[in-house]
């Protein structure tokens, strides 16, 4: 088998919580406590689990938004966890993140054009405004948005449209790995379907690898090649999507699957 694009070994991210100081003890919250997985080129791995189990923290650690306590993450053969911020910065182009809340993740004071031009200029992918503009128009089209949205501000768009803009901001850099943290859970069901289709199509067409973080098992089944189930900061089960859904092994995975509302099943009474 070829070398995976991302290979995470024994990742730990601990937070000290509570105020330290005289006679007060800080306690340690082991949000991620020894997680290992790998993602190959063009593969979609889903990370599922209940809220607070540490899924987002995995994604945020891999993008240096949190500091890893221990472990390694080999990206394209290089450990990204012990890079300094300056060393990691050029790699940000390759490792991009889509955030959950489309209302909070777009700066209300920047127009769509300013927002999408920023990463282009930072990574030297456009020399001037007209070059940037060309690429922005193309990317907006890719996510199903009109070119004339460029001059508008985030508050003029619906949740679904904002999430498309968030996806455009990521795809405009043609990354190699996208970490999507609950990208549709803040949207309405019908809009979720639109955005899920979009993500799936973009992933297929560009062949980008993806870490898809979600607690919506329907979406996970729809989009992923493999699934990793997380519980209390640890992975309890990893497998091919079909295998996880049809023959779950771990008790927590079984409970998770049994909790999904299904048609024709009645609760209680």
């Amino acid at each position: 088998m070829t070398r995976p694009l991302l290979d995470v070994r024994e990742l730990k991210t601990h937070f000290s919580i509570g105020r330290g100081g005289f006679m007060r003890r800080k306690s340690l919250l082991r949000a991620v406590d020894g997680v290992s997985f790998s993602i190959h080129d063009g593969e979609v791995l889903s990370l599922v689990g209940e809220s607070g189990c540490g899924k987002s923290t995995v994604g945020r650690t891999l993008t240096h938004l949190e500091t890893a306590t221990a472990g390694t993450a080999m990206f394209d053969g290089r450990d990204i966890l012990n890079l300094s911020p300056a060393e990691f910065r050029p790699l940000r182009r390759d490792i991009q993140m889509v955030f959950q809340d489309p209302f909070a993740s777009l700066n209300p004071r920047l127009s769509i054009e300013q927002m999408l031009a920023e990463p282009l200029f930072i990574h030297g992918l456009a020399r001037d405004r007209s070059e940037a503009r060309e690429r922005i128009v193309a990317t907006l089209e890719l996510v199903g948005m009109d070119a004339n949205s460029m001059s508008r501000y985030p508050h003029e768009f619906s949740g679904g449209q904002r999430q498309r803009i968030g996806i455009a901001r990521v795809m405009i850099l043609t990354p190699r790995l996208v970490i999507a943290d609950e990208p549709v859970s803040a949207l309405d069901v019908s809009i979720q379907a639109q955005v899920l289709n979009l993500i799936k199509r973009l992933q297929r067409d560009s062949g980008v690898s993806m870490l898809f973080i979600s607690h919506d098992l329907g979406a996970v089944r729809h989009i992923s090649d493999r699934v990793a189930v997380m519980y209390g900061g640890k992975l309890v089960e990893t497998g091919k999507t079909r295998q996880i859904f049809e023959t779950p092994r771990h008790a927590y995975t079984q409970r998770l699957l049994a909790s999904i509302p299904r048609f024709g099943k009645r609760i209680g009474r």
Partner: peptide, 23 residues
Amino acid sequence: LGLLGSMPALDHDVEWLDAIPGR
């Protein structure tokens, strides 16, 4: 029917969801 089609199936694979277009 559109609401139903928007929900990913859990017991079989569908290629694309029947999303309701627009908003």
